[in-house]
Write a protein that binds this DNA or RNA. Structure first.
Lengths: 251, 251
DNA sequence: GTCAATGGTTTGTCCTGACATATTTTGTCA
DNA sequence: TGACAAAATATGTCAGGACAAACCATTGAC
């Protein structure tokens, strides 16, 4: 906008054509940086595609692909006949598939996990159905208690089919379940979650250090990998006083 | 796969080049139909892009765009050097931005809404901040009680900035809030939600026909339109015994 | 018999060029 | 001055070609 038309002020051409990183992605990353650093102010219109492509020395399809990438991520809005605008940076990330372990790591709290149960056994019918495996097929069944600092936060039950991953107790003590799944090549890509609430039973209350009847958040989830294979079933209980789900949605 | 190599069995070439509907979209829709009707079985590999493009009489970029569209929707998976596969139809839809009203309509229950409060007033500071409007700016403030059949289901509080939509009580009695927003051209596109749980106070319990101390699901949300303008703030209470959130996530 | 090289298949990236369409601005005429 | 028409500007769509990179299976050597 307020730049010279001759393009003299463009020293930051950091595109590397020998790099294995796709050009369109390099362009998109560069644009994203400029937006996040306020170089391109929120609400302002970008230069048009053709000029941008010219200035960066890429073709228009490549430029369009970079812009499309940011449009999909909710960072830019395009209007035909008008131009491309930077939207409010408040909502950026779409819903991500993460685990509680990841969430805690991100927020800087040290997660600790106590494994209370660990066995291979036939899956209960309800879980077998959720996983889409034959009734009676064997799964690794886990009960874990997760702490944030010294306080218990969640009581988690998981079932992992044996042909997906042969779990070991010591791995689970060091890593989150999702890390292990990813490491085994079964990257969770889709999941169906149901979030509800109920009150704690006496046993649950004791384990979670809550009063009996305290409100708990419940979450049951089935996760699939890219090929559509079910990789995990989970049924978790969270202390409502210490935890809530945050979701960023895009339509 | 089991089709003749000469391509004799392709009577359904229904592409219309004079139509204003983009070619790639026509191709994608056609593919989607064939997948949903089982014409192209789940798990099977598609023909390669070049052949498909040839057979349909479109260029490879157009074919790729059609396939990409379905990949983004989670219907297909591409692997370089391997091919394109139809994924399990169980998880298809990404997270959608809906309201409780829509949810109830879909599940076939008749929703009814009782408006308990309706006024224009300055936004409380916390809500003004969530909406990104100046402190003290006026909003339409609503308290509604939603029923499924005869039973109360949720107690909902909403705030809508005046410059987004001038609400009328009678509109709200007939339509969901999101329909009204969409009708006014402020299509909600992004939202940030926090889902938690707590126990009902005496007053809330009375309104929702629950016992005091019953578990409630809480949800607070801010929604923005495509331009990044905040269009709605909501703080809702659901009876945990009657309602839960279902989410489909994709990474 | 096992492991490494090789070649074919398929998707991924990038280019040039052209035309279509929506929107806003400008210009002209009544 | 007002309304309508034309032009300028921007994104949207589509074609055709070229090369790169990943994957798989087969072949070959040890």
């Amino acid at each position: 906008m307020d730049r010279q038309a001759n393009g003299a002020l463009v020293p930051d051409v950091t595109l590397d054509r020998t790099s294995p990183v796709p050009l369109y992605y390099q362009v998109a990353t560069r644009l994203q940086q400029q937006i996040e650093e306020g170089d391109i102010p929120v609400g302002s219109r970008l230069e048009n595609e053709v000029e941008l492509a010219d200035r960066l020395g890429v073709s228009r399809p490549t430029m369009r692909r970079a812009i499309s990438y940011l449009v999909e991520r909710g960072m830019l809005v395009r209007k035909r006949g008008v131009g491309t605008q930077v939207v409010h940076p408040k909502v950026r990330r779409p819903v991500e598939l993460t685990s509680l372990y990841d969430d805690l790591l991100k927020s800087g709290q040290a997660p600790r996990t106590e494994i209370r149960e660990f066995e291979v056994r036939p899956a209960p019918d309800q879980i077998a159905e959720a996983l889409g495996i034959p009734f009676g097929a064997e799964v690794t069944w886990i009960e874990r208690l997760r702490f944030a600092g010294d306080e218990p936060l969640a009581l988690m039950h998981n079932a992992v089919p044996l042909d997906v991953l042969r779990l070991h107790r010591e791995d689970l003590e060091r890593n989150g379940l999702y890390d292990l799944l990813r490491g085994a090549g079964h990257v969770p890509r889709m999941a169906n979650q149901v979030v509800g609430a109920r009150t704690a039973s006496a046993g649950e209350a004791r384990i979670l250090d809550e009063a009996r009847g305290a409100p708990l958040l419940t979450m049951t989830r089935t996760a699939w990998d890219a090929a559509g294979k079910a990789v995990e079933y989970g049924s978790h209980l969270y202390r409502a006083s210490r935890y809530s789900f945050e979701l960023n949605l895009t339509s």
